[in-house]
């Protein structure tokens, strides 16, 4: 991780923290160790992972380990999506110590759709709406207790959600 990345991430976090902090950064009077601490204290946006073109590359970039299919990961997605622009997908799991949940669509131009960070005390259950360019496997990754688990389901798309 280089300094540029740290600064970028920290700056973005500061934007979330408020305009006052942003002004401080703009004036360059926030010391580097403060921005570093902020970057470390918060989850960095996984820029590279969102550019990957295959499930395997996303998993490698995001987690650096392999995923093991698990029946404890329950995904709810439609069999057929009439509108690929809005496909409701949700996941819930009985796995303990979940730290993150990610959604992947294999056939989309960029495979990674979303990654949710789950702090202690937040339930391992997320619902969202995703775009699908065409019929594809939808994969959910659940990081729990330092291991990676997955569930996948094919969703048939009759009208794609990525134009063209």
């Amino acid at each position: 991780m280089n300094t540029m990345e740290n600064d970028f991430s920290a700056t973005r976090r500061l934007i979330l923290k408020g305009a006052g902090a942003l002004t401080l950064i703009g004036l360059g009077i926030v010391p580097l160790d403060v921005t570093k601490a902020l970057a470390a204290a918060n989850d960095k946006y996984p820029e590279e992972a969102f550019k990957q073109k295959s499930d395997a590359d996303v998993i490698k970039t995001l987690y650096g380990k392999t995923a093991e299919p698990s029946e404890k990961v329950k995904m709810d997605a439609p069999e057929i999506a009439e509108n690929g622009a809005v496909v409701p997908v949700s996941v819930t799991t009985t796995l303990a110590d979940v730290t993150s949940i990610a959604f992947l669509v294999s056939e989309n131009p960029n495979v990674l759709i979303a990654k949710y960070n789950i702090p202690a005390g937040t339930l391992p259950s997320v619902a969202n709406r995703i775009k699908m360019a065409k019929t594809s496997n939808v994969t959910v990754l659940v990081e729990a207790g330092g291991k990676l688990y997955s569930a996948a389901k094919e969703v048939k798309v009759t009208v794609g959600g990525c134009g063209g």
């Binding site: 960029n110 979303a114 949710y116 339930l123 997320v126 969202n128 995703i130």
Partner: peptide
């Protein structure tokens, strides 16, 4: 004052995005 949920999103999330989650407390 504590983060309870963070979403990292790409362009594959639907327009006018919706998300649902739950936390203890």
């Amino acid at each position: 004052g504590k983060n309870v949920f963070t979403a990292d999103w790409g362009g594959g999330v639907s327009k006018d995005p919706y998300v649902k989650f739950a936390f203890k407390g």
